[in-house]
């Protein structure tokens, strides 16, 4: 069934790192159109690095990264801007521009790339702020927002230009249970109403199982699992089991 869908993001034998440090070693991954894929793994294994490579912010040392079958690895910044315009990235801590208001943050790409008229930009900002439940926050500065609100503004910023692909970097990390629930609901709403292709990086297993159509697990620079949430629960690989239920695994070893 999967083969009939278009592959939006492909990692082919990709090795990614920073300088001499290799973080992800010869990995392959496919994200299909309309799919919600989750990259699971403990903190610091290089999950966010994969997202940055997909956006073209860092280049892999070997292999290919394809967006809509185009290998973006040799692309210069100008060509990457075109590729990035199809994607929205929600950074771990929002990465909102401190010097701008919420409204300016949300409308940033629309204004910068002159995607539509000022009137329509205003209308779109209201629409997406309404979607994320922050109708009255337009004139606030990022410093005046809570962690959960910052994440929601970041989602609104991503949503404003109506991108095809959403990349989420640890969307629920550091949030209280209520904000955690709200952000997760927002992502489910995004999945259902926008039919967006989503690639989510997280270490939150429960959240991943609720959101994902398919899951990959990153362990020591390699994907050790790639399949559906159901297949993940039934997987017998000790490394996968250790990640999913570390307490039970530790008890079993004793």
């Amino acid at each position: 069934m999967k083969e009939n869908r278009e592959a939006i993001i492909q990692l082919i034998n990709a090795t990614i790192g920073y300088g001499d440090l290799t973080v992800v070693n010869h990995v392959d991954m496919v994200v299909y159109q309309g799919e919600t894929k989750v990259i699971l793994g403990p903190s610091g294994v290089g999950k966010s690095t994969i997202l940055k490579a997909i956006l073209g912010l860092i280049k892999p040392t070997t292999g290919e990264i394809r967006i809509h079958r185009e290998n973006i690895v040799p692309y210069q910044e100008r060509e990457l801007v075109r590729i990035r315009s199809q994607m929205a990235m929600v950074f771990q801590h929002g990465a909102l521009f401190d010097s701008m208001t919420v409204g300016e943050n949300v409308s940033y790409r629309l204004r910068e790339l002159e995607m539509t008229t000022p009137d329509k930009i205003d209308q779109r900002v209201d629409e997406v702020l309404n979607f994320v439940g922050l109708r009255g926050a337009r004139k606030l500065k990022p410093a005046q927002l809570s962690g959960g609100m910052r994440k929601r503004v970041a989602i609104a910023r991503g949503l404003a230009p109506d991108p095809e692909v959403f990349l989420f970097d640890e969307p629920t990390v550091g949030l209280d249970p209520i904000n955690h629930f709200n952000i997760e609901q927002l992502m489910l709403k995004l999945k259902k109403t926008q039919r967006a292709t989503m690639l989510i990086v997280t270490h939150d297993v429960e959240s991943a199982l609720r959101l994902a159509d398919s899951i990959v697990i990153l362990h020591e620079g390699q994907f050790i699992f790639d399949g559906t949430p159901t297949a993940l629960k039934e997987n017998q690989d000790m490394r996968v089991k250790a990640f999913l239920d570390p307490e039970k695994f530790a008890t079993a070893r004793e």
């Binding site: 940055k52 956006l55 912010l57 910044e77 801007v81 990035r84 315009s85 994607m87 929205a88 990235m89 950074f91 990465a95 909102l96 521009f97 940033y108 790409r109 910068e112 790339l113 910023r157």
Partner: peptide, 8 residues
């Protein structure tokens, strides 16, 4: 990174 991701 966000600036670059937003096309600037």
């Amino acid at each position: 990174d966000a600036l670059r991701a937003e096309g600037s």
